[in-house]
Design a protein around this nucleic acid. Structure first.
Length: 350
DNA sequence: TTCCAGCACC
DNA sequence: GGTGCTGGAA
């Protein structure tokens, strides 16, 4: 295959399509690296429709890198609550502080410099370099993998070492070096709107004549991904200790999900267990004290990328006014306390 | 109810 | 290579 001979007609067709189909997104109205960086971090693993509301809240609350750096992490996490992959918010905050403290609040102006930022990998570095600085770096996100795998009928697994090399080389050949910003946004929009993951409308596709997957009836077969590993199953028993309208929570620490988010007293097991056995454990007895009132437990199932959590929320009115190791949180203080989607969902059902 | 899409770090 | 989330489509 001679990639160069297909690059020009591909770019032309793509840019023609983009002129009439491009999405109007708020972060496309700027070349401010801060705004572009913020939008790209939010959009990692996140759909544009969901990301827009968060982007608006962030850019309003933290209009520049100085404001973000000066904010407490808890405020950033609260703004991020519900978006998932909370390390993105922690890295966002850490990077803002590093930029302000060590680089006068200015962003690196090269791809390699951008790569040194926490939370910025090859995709995000290429996106910022091309969109904010118009440097010729091809982005390779899920959309681009899909478009290229279909057009050139590539069945190399996209995340294998060989696949990454092959797709990166191809993407670099196709990139329009004079308009890397427009080109990159065009191919991502093309993947998001036209060359969609399932049942794309190939009859209306401007690329169909030269799409190998379409011509060979193999659109559904590519891109190829590696089989994913089995999910870990965990059982969470949350004791929702209540003192009047107040609740007791603590911050999650350690190398696990939901770092720095807050939660109720928790017993975790690998196997399901009975409420009776939990109530006889010394830890739980210490939380509940001698006199308490149990209420009907609420069961929720929560799926994470590599885990399945069976959660049981057990509301208990307790007599004690303090719980060692926990913070007593009033309903109004809950408004500023970041919690996981799981706990948010439980609270919303009350 | 299940499946699936979407990057970075350790 | 394993791990971190959520919401919308199927």
């Amino acid at each position: 295959m001679n990639s160069k001979s297909v690059a020009l007609p591909f770019r032309t067709t793509l840019l023609n399509w983009y002129e009439t189909h491009q999405r109007n997104l708020p972060w496309r109205q700027t070349r401010d690296p801060y705004a572009i960086w913020l939008s790209e971090i939010i959009l990692q693993q996140t759909r544009v429709e969901q990301g827009q509301g968060y982007y608006h809240r962030f850019i309003t609350t933290f209009p520049d890198v100085q404001t973000l750096a000066a904010a407490p992490l808890q405020e950033v996490l609260k703004c991020w609550q519900g978006l998932g992959y909370y390390s993105r918010a922690r890295n966002l905050h850490a990077t803002a502080k590093a930029l302000v403290n060590d680089h006068q609040g200015r962003f690196p102006e090269t791809y390699e410099g951008l790569l040194t930022l926490k939370g910025v990998g090859s995709y995000t570095a290429a996106a910022i370099a091309s969109i904010a600085y118009r440097q010729p770096h091809a982005v390779l996100d899920g959309n681009v993998f899909r478009v290229l795998a279909r057009l050139f009928l590539i069945d190399t697994p996209i995340h294998s070492t060989a696949g990454k090399k092959q797709f990166a080389a191809l993407a670099d050949t196709l990139l329009d070096p004079h308009h890397p910003d427009t080109y990159n946004q065009a191919i991502m929009d093309f993947g998001a709107l036209q060359c969609v993951p399932s049942k794309p409308d190939c009859a209306r596709c401007p690329m169909k004549e030269r799409c190998l997957a379409h011509n060979r009836d193999a659109v559904a077969l590519v891109p190829v991904r590696k089989a994913e590993t089995a999910k870990r199953v965990r059982y969470f028993y949350y004791f929702v200790c209540r003192q009047g309208n107040d609740l007791f929570l603590r911050e999650r620490t350690g190398k696990d999900v939901w770092q720095h988010l807050w939660e109720f007293p928790l017993v975790e097991t690998e196997q399901p267990c009975t409420l009776e056995s939990l109530l006889s454990s010394p830890e739980v007895m210490a939380w509940l004290g001698d006199s308490f009132t149990l209420h009907t437990p609420v069961s929720l199932k929560h799926t994470l990328s590599h885990q399945l959590i069976h959660a049981l929320f057990i509301p208990v009115d307790i007599v004690a006014t303090t719980l060692p190791g926990f913070t007593r949180v009033s309903p109004s203080a809950m408004e500023t306390t970041p919690v996981s989607r799981l706990i948010d969902l439980y609270l919303s059902k009350l």
